[in-house]
Design a protein around this nucleic acid. Structure first.
Lengths: 251, 251
DNA sequence: TCGGGTTATTGATTCATGCCAATGCCGCGC
DNA sequence: GCGCGGCATTGGCATGAATCAATAACCCGA
């Protein structure tokens, strides 16, 4: 599905727009060289585009360069659960490489640019680049860590705690990759997305947000979210830190 | 914490009690040789023992050889969410290897025997054993897949669907490793564990189970669960298959 | 600038689930 | 055989959350 333009890349790895961010661990020339050769192209998609589809088998892996997406699963009757969001630096499609078939879908929230890697070469990475294969595992473990937190969130926090937690989570992740200000960010999602992440109905999500507005903890209009009282929000959410604090790899 | 007995192992890799199961992919002599050398000892624990603790950093990795355990997170006020269960063949403690600090705890449900691997040698595995490092990633991806399903379950299914789904999930996993009969298994958990997995109160879990008994879909007494009507249960759960169908690695 | 579609908001009502409290059941040690 | 502790069960009630329904606000394209 993704057409990897044979022509020159807009973002060759040597001029990667995000690698310079201080959250990413420095790569050796050798590592960078392999990643550059591994990269087969760039995929540019519009908002709402489906990047990966549950039940299909993708021949590609992706790293988000620019933009936001979300991973989700659906029940046959249409109920949707958003599992996680993907931001610049996040790796998508690993499951298809391991199991042949995607067990979730991925949809773009904004216009996006993704690095495209051919799945059949992942094995080369494992054979010849121990540090990078360690990195792939690292990324998988981090995703697992986030899912653990979300499961705790949906399973054991009530509506207001849960919402506060998710807002903090999104803010921290955006901030890590330079997409947030001191206490605000452009959040390209609707209340429906929030609801589907939180495991709540959209109406109840709306009412819960209202309580957060009324208590002057956050403001959110026209896609811009502002955190007005970080401490109070953390208190409500029983926030625990969550970040690994470590430099992370960027494949 | 785990004392790796310098003395002879009770279960040397060459006589692994589970590797022969047909769910596990065959290993080459070379792979098996490394795993055998990687294995530093065996850990035997009683039910209720804490194997890994959130917030600490473990110097060991484990593979479950015998017994059941569960992974969980807790909120400061004591609410607990069970994230997943661990059965023979499952790998524990990867997070500590990647991030230094555990972000969840693991507790034994039964008497257990675990293979113990020294964390500092994981790097050796990545450097010299591409196929095994691929396997570690595979295991991480599978865990992620299960967490995705659980998140969908807790976030979007109602009490009876959710319970039906979890019961099926546990049954299938036990069956995969030879721990279940055609439609029954020894399930070493209490209703409290179920409740903490499902994100429900224990009372409501009990009432939901009663509805399943009343409809003659399952029976569960003295730790033995029997599935009386698999098809009906799958229908309620909107069961989707879930298994990768692939042979899995065993580190 | 208008119009239609999406998203957000709100109140009213119903329903699902949580919480409290009491009881029963069972295994175990002595 | 008794008493104790952990687990399971049940009814009653409180409340959080879903659903229904109506409207408002907003965005985008013609």
């Amino acid at each position: 599905m993704p057409s990897s333009s044979g022509s020159a890349l807009k973002y060759p790895c040597e001029q990667c727009p995000i690698r310079g961010l201080k959250v990413f661990r420095p790569f050796t020339a050798e590592e960078l060289g392999f990643v550059a050769s591994f990269k087969a192209g760039e995929l540019v998609v519009d908002p709402r585009a489906t990047i990966l589809q549950e039940g299909t088998s993708s021949t590609h892996l992706f790293t988000v360069l620019i933009g936001w997406a979300f991973r989700y699963k659906m029940l046959p009757d249409g109920r949707r659960q958003i599992l996680n969001f993907a931001l610049p630096g996040d790796f998508l499609g690993l499951q298809a490489s391991m199991f042949n078939e995607m067990t979730h879908s991925v949809e773009a929230l904004t216009s996006m640019t993704l690095c495209v890697f051919p799945r059949e070469r992942i094995w080369e990475l494992y054979e010849h680049h121990a540090s990078l294969s360690f990195d792939v595992t690292w990324l998988a473990a981090r995703e697992e860590q986030i899912l653990d937190s979300h499961l705790l969130n949906v399973g054991r926090r009530n509506a207001i705690e849960r919402t506060a937690y998710l807002i903090l989570h999104l803010f921290m992740r955006a901030r890590d990759v330079g997409l947030a200000g001191k206490a605000n960010l452009a959040l390209p999602i609707t209340q429906q997305h929030l609801a589907d992440t939180l495991g709540m109905s959209i109406v109840h999500t709306n009412k819960t947000l209202r309580r957060l507005y009324d208590r002057k903890l956050i403001s959110w209009k026209s896609q811009r979210l502002e955190i007005l009282d970080m401490e109070a929000l953390k208190e409500i959410a029983e926030w625990d830190g969550e970040s690994t604090g470590q430099l992370r790899p960027l494949i």
